[in-house]
Design a protein around this nucleic acid. Sequence first.
DNA 1: TCTTCTTATGCTCGCACTGAGTATAACCCC
DNA 2: GGGGTTATACTCAGTGCGAGCATAAGAAGA
Lengths: 300, 300
Amino acid sequence: MSSAVVGLNAVIVSVGDTAPQVLVVSSGEGWALPSGQLAADDRTLDLALRRYVRDQTALELGYVEQLYTFGDLGRVPDERQRLLSVAYLALTRADEPSSNARWLDCYELLPWEDHRAGRPAVLDELVDPAVNAWADEVGAGEGGEARRQRGDIVFAFHDAPWDGVRVLERYELLYEVGLLTEAPGPSSATTIDSVPMRFDHRRMVATALGRLRGKLTYRPVVFELLPDTFTLLQLQRLVEALAGVALHKQNFRRLVERARLVEGTGDTLQTGGRPAELFRFRREVLTERPRPGVGVPWSL
Amino acid sequence: MSSAVVGLNAVIVSVGDTAPQVLVVSSGEGWALPSGQLAADDRTLDLALRRYVRDQTALELGYVEQLYTFGDLGRVPDERQRLLSVAYLALTRADEPSSNARWLDCYELLPWEDHRAGRPAVLDELVDPAVNAWADEVGAGEGGEARRQRGDIVFAFHDAPWDGVRVLERYELLYEVGLLTEAPGPSSATTIDSVPMRFDHRRMVATALGRLRGKLTYRPVVFELLPDTFTLLQLQRLVEALAGVALHKQNFRRLVERARLVEGTGDTLQTGGRPAELFRFRREVLTERPRPGVGVPWSL
DNA sequence: TCTTCTTATGCTCGCACTGAGTATAACCCC
DNA sequence: GGGGTTATACTCAGTGCGAGCATAAGAAGA
């Protein structure tokens, strides 16, 4: 029987003032996701993850979901060794990380994903030409067209619609065209700068953000990231931060109220303008609707 | 560094005359999914999977997607050993399995999932009372209500809507209430009978069916299971088989044509009634729509 | 040939939801 | 009170969908 070294990684997401953020710890080669080993007496992978995250960061995780298992040769510098890593997504409200850990803004790692203030310039200035050059590599024939079409789909060139969920596909395409390097190394003029992260940990963050953006639209996961009561604008800002797009305020309000996702508490909160009513998540919605979520443009 | 035995499993899905089916091979303890070991020189997990499936079943896989990694202690009879299994979903049109393999009807394994001819009686006759008894175990208080609510959500009791995607949640709840046993063993009057499968392979099938039903609604995966040209009724029957629900014929037609998912070829096929036009998948839809899929009731 | 059965295809209501925008309310500060 | 700010209510047009009616085009049998 063959065996491999098995590791676990946690992409722990919370939301700061303006953007989603992931918990990272410092490592020799840039920042790293909290990682651990599976111990012989961990009954389940989930429990192992919770255990070592508690040990390393003093954080008690709430929502936890398995993301993906990475096992390609060459994902770690040592070519001989295969490291199998099971990555998890975890959500938490906690905002005070322990000593050697810190929150890292997701959009520092993946700047092309934030469209709240419009389409990032880097897409048309850097990515578009790079994808075109990459398509030209294989000639103007079939293969080139397929490459161009793939670029159009994931980056929404030529009037194709932007799909916020395709975070991982964008990451992988950027990697293929040579605009980003996986392991920390010298960044050049032809790569998109970012905070260096260990191994393929940035890819794990991309996987997590994509999954989260998808789940947003059909499961009430946002409420894992909010306090028990909140104003509708707080909820909206949170959804916008995760989805990476701006939303129409009145329609957002109508959506969550008519979907009966939230219920008013009667209390209000001072805001600087007219006081806002405080709402709470309405748990009963789980039995009423098949896919209770918040609705962003790409959920149709 | 800790290490574990690592296996790969493939849930290979095709669609027969009336139902989705998975490829199984015979094993000492009932049927088993094709499984393999990761070899040291397999560059990626995908490639390893394709390699051993080719060796074992002489099948060349098309669409392949990682499903989930199973690693709980106790999923295999030997309590000491931890077996980590990375399960994959694969789609294929091939209908002739090799010697020791055969196609097994998904709804023989998961009979409560097929609602095409109405809600299966087993849900209200067997599952409902069992869930109620299970809820009563913890008293009529908070815990009991939570259990009952969970039953309502996943099995659509008390007017809750049926959500075809929650295959795995249903499987897990049935397991918790004691209506099915994971490893092959004596079935009793209080368990739902089914074909015995090795280890937790039936759980893997449930995972695969759930994933497939979800993907159906936002990616054109059905066409992986169809010949190049097909009639709209063939397409509809296929979607119905996977989704486990019956669809309105005229509306289905309108949906796929207006979404521009398919295009007519001009040819027709004899059917027993008026000849049907043959259609093909319209690849350009990938750049036009963010989530090209077929639309089933739970996709809203 | 005429009838009946079967499948395919076209079309039309009515409802629900959505995008976009206008209008009004309720607080702050000065 | 005026102006800024945020909250909340409401309207209107377009779109998508569930449900059903109607017609077309073949096969099979009387």
